[in-house]
């Protein structure tokens, strides 16, 4: 696959990817969630923050598709807005983590020697922290804003990407076309970003997809514990928490956000695995 140009490689990859029905299904769901999150203000039948105590804890009906919560807010509308939060936390956090991961991995892999040892030990150290509790601590100290959460998740999840990118760089930097670039007199920065990195990105996309799922889960977990996105802003995690109290009286408050989280995370994981299988020629024959 390394012998191919970008456009034809995408075609080639799609040919394998579409054979994997689960992954295609996951991709469809992700796209739907994306569209829903993007058009939430138009799709939502009610203002997600509007309370009406006379309508509290109504079960799902044609008027309120997914029922109402303890303050009479429309759960369906809140879920739509919650999708925005979950997705933006997922993508921004992973964006940050990929950026750091690529930078650290590229520098470690390209320069080798003590730079490599130093950075990889840093990775080991970061891996040693129980990430979730680290995030909890930091959020407790800095305050639970959505911005803080995205940044902290990003800062604590780049290590896998860094290891991947380093491994790719270690093998790619010995290739002839990299030596050719050096023979032309290019500087290190250009060799790293123009010649090596584009050839090292495939596995990064795979881990990124899987990381989005993890980041969404972490956000939901934080919100559930009350350290995440703060009410009244809706996120799947805090809808779930608020509904927990009424779990026996109003099942719809916990089931639907739970399902949404499950479906999204599952979809990202399926797409991630589909990506991995279709990008790795050794795994192509299996399905």
């Amino acid at each position: 696959m390394n012998e191919r140009g970008m456009t034809s490689q995408i075609k080639f990859f799609w040919k394998y990817f579409k054979r994997n029905r689960l992954a295609v299904g996951g991709l469809t769901i992700i796209l739907i969630i994306f569209i829903v999150a993007g058009t939430a203000p138009f799709l939502a039948p009610y203002d997600p923050g509007k309370t009406d105590v006379s309508l509290k804890l109504k079960p799902p009906s044609l008027k309120h598709y997914l029922g109402t919560d303890q303050l009479g807010r429309d759960v369906f509308s809140r879920m739509l807005y919650g999708a925005r939060i979950s997705l933006s936390v997922g993508f921004v956090a992973v964006g940050i983590s990929i950026f750091i991961g690529i930078l650290v991995g590229a520098i470690a892999g390209y320069y080798g020697r003590w730079v490599d040892s130093l950075l990889m030990r840093l990775v080991d150290i970061m891996f040693c922290f129980p990430t979730f509790f680290l995030i909890l601590t930091v959020v407790a100290l800095l305050g639970p804003s959505i911005f803080n959460i995205m940044v902290i998740i990003g800062l604590t999840s780049w290590m896998g990407t860094a290891r991947f990118v380093r491994a790719e760089f270690l093998s790619l930097k010995e290739r002839d076309f990299v030596q050719a670039a050096r023979a032309l007199g290019l500087n290190d920065r250009r060799i790293i970003f123009r010649h090596i990195l584009p050839n090292a990105l495939a596995p990064v996309f795979v881990t990124a997809t899987l990381d989005v799922a993890t980041a969404i889960l972490v956000e939901a977990g934080l919100s559930f514990l009350g350290f995440g996105v703060q009410p009244p802003a809706p996120s799947w995690g805090n809808i779930l928490t608020e509904g927990r109290t009424y779990i026996f009286d109003a099942w719809w408050l916990t089931v639907f956000p739970g399902l949404a989280i499950l479906l999204t995370v599952l979809s990202f994981n399926l797409v991630g695995e589909g990506l991995r299988d279709s990008l790795d020629p050794r795994l192509r024959g299996r399905r």
Partner: peptide, 9 residues
């Protein structure tokens, strides 16, 4: 086959 960057024109 090794000496040309596959991602560049």
């Amino acid at each position: 086959y090794e000496s040309l960057n596959p991602r560049m024109r």
